Computed example of a mutant assay.
Amino acid sequence: MPVVAHSQLPAFERLREEGHVVLDENRAVHQDIRELHIGLLNMMPDAALMATERQFIRLVSASNLIAQFHVHVFTLPSIPRGEKAQAYIEQYYESFETLKREGLDALILSGANPQAAHLSEEPFWEELTQVIDWANENVTTTMCSCLATHAVVEHLYGLKRQRLPEGKCWGVFSHTLAHPEHPLVSNLNTKFDTPHSRFNDISQEAFESKGLRVLVTSQQAGVHLAVSPDLFRWIFLQGHPEYDRASLLKEYKRDITRWHAGQYKTCPPIPYRMLDERLEPLLNDFAHRVADAKLNDSPMPELPEPLLWNGIHNTWGDTAKALFSNWIGKMYQVTHHERSIPFMEGIDPNDPLGLLGK
């Protein structure tokens, strides 16, 4: 259960302040508890870099297993960075080469802000596919978020994302279980919320055409959770269960600020079900004031965040914790005690959970 502060990454101290159990490395070495080493490839832009670390490490630390979790954060050198973010990465992040040499029990691939029309045109595509290929041979299980999901299914299965005709899938959507018997979702509520934030999509029909199993769907947002044909080695998320309560509001503030500055052609809509209905008029009024300021070349008005805060609720956090607990729990049961070896003896890599044929 405890996360081990095996580096000076500021996220560890922030999680301590939130009340999470974070062990010093000196204390951890004296505990007779199994270590699990989980990689986090953080591809998010500079402004979201640290928040993404905290979000995923928080979910890992909330797992109910008796184990010490070492989370190894790294990124791709080809992702453009500002001077401050690059200095932060050089100080706190690990290298992919080191992790390849030492091994990982599991891996999380974060989303990223798409810049190109096609994933293969992204500046980080070649480096990302190298990580995917290595993980496919050497890691027990990999959790993919949003753009990472689209990248993996394109690279491994030749399945390309499609641009959403209605624009951005953005907000908090209701979901249901398509296969409640799968161990990843076995103790989840049969109906629950999850945030989404994406311009692109892979449909349920497309996933299933390549033999991938869809576990969670939404009538409005489409597929949220799917798994590879072996049912465990690749976990695909199109939603964002890791999001904080304020994540969508921060995204909205970022996007409407960019629209005011002329970087976006259209004013962003209010994310679906982000707010209580009674507070949506307040945010609509703010959007109108931004539009007036843009038209008159006036400064950007201030977002009334203190007034909005009470109307924002996290309705997905417990489900996210349960999902990650299930994922790590199953990984714990099949991964080798040597982190450089993906499976213990007797485990079939093509059916690691022994579910096929049942």
Rank of each mutant, 00 (worst) to 15 (best):
S110M: 05
T98K: 08
L107H: 05
R163A: 15
T176Y: 13
E154H: 09
E181L: 09
V153W: 02
E97I: 01
Q115P: 01
L156T: 09
V131S: 01
C146D: 09
I132G: 07
G158Q: 08
A135C: 12
L184V: 13
V153L: 03
V131T: 03
P165R: 06
L147S: 09
A178P: 00
Q162L: 10
H175E: 12
E121W: 00
N136C: 03
Q162Y: 11
A106L: 10
A112G: 11
L99E: 10
F173M: 04
Y92Q: 02
Y92R: 02
Q130W: 00
S120W: 00
A106I: 05
L128E: 03
E127T: 07
P165N: 05
G171W: 13
L184I: 14
F173P: 05
A106W: 13
C144P: 01
H179V: 15
R161M: 08
S174E: 12
S110Q: 09
L99Y: 10
T149D: 04
L99M: 15
W134K: 01
C169R: 10
D105C: 02
F173C: 09
L119H: 03
S110W: 03
L184Q: 06
E154Q: 14
E122R: 03
P165G: 08
F173A: 10
L119T: 00
T140M: 05
P123N: 07
A117R: 08
A112Y: 06
I108M: 10
K100F: 01
Y92E: 04
H175W: 12
H118I: 03
E90V: 00
L109E: 04
Q162S: 14
L109I: 15
S95Q: 06
H182G: 12
H155C: 01
P114G: 07
Y92I: 02
T149E: 01
A151S: 13
C169V: 15
L156V: 06
A148W: 04
H118P: 00
P123F: 02
V152F: 07
W134I: 00
H155V: 00
C144V: 11
Q130D: 10
T98Q: 10
H150S: 04
Y93L: 13
D133K: 02
L119P: 00
A117Y: 02
R161F: 10
N113I: 07
L99K: 07
A117H: 08
T129W: 07
E102Q: 11
K168A: 06
W125H: 01
P123Y: 05
H179L: 12
W170S: 11
A117I: 06
T98M: 06
I89F: 03
F96C: 07
V139F: 02
L109C: 07
Q115Y: 11
E154A: 00
G111S: 12
E97W: 02
Q91E: 15
L109A: 09
A151H: 02
M143I: 15
G167V: 01
G111I: 11
H118F: 10
L184Y: 10
P180N: 08
C169Y: 06
A106M: 12
E94I: 07
E121I: 00
V152C: 04
A116V: 02
L164A: 13
W125Q: 02
C169Q: 12
L184N: 06
L177H: 11
L147V: 13
G103S: 07
H182D: 08
A178D: 14
Q130G: 04
S95P: 07
K168D: 03
Q130A: 04
Q162N: 09
T149W: 03
E122A: 13
L99F: 06
Q91C: 10
T141C: 13
S120Q: 11
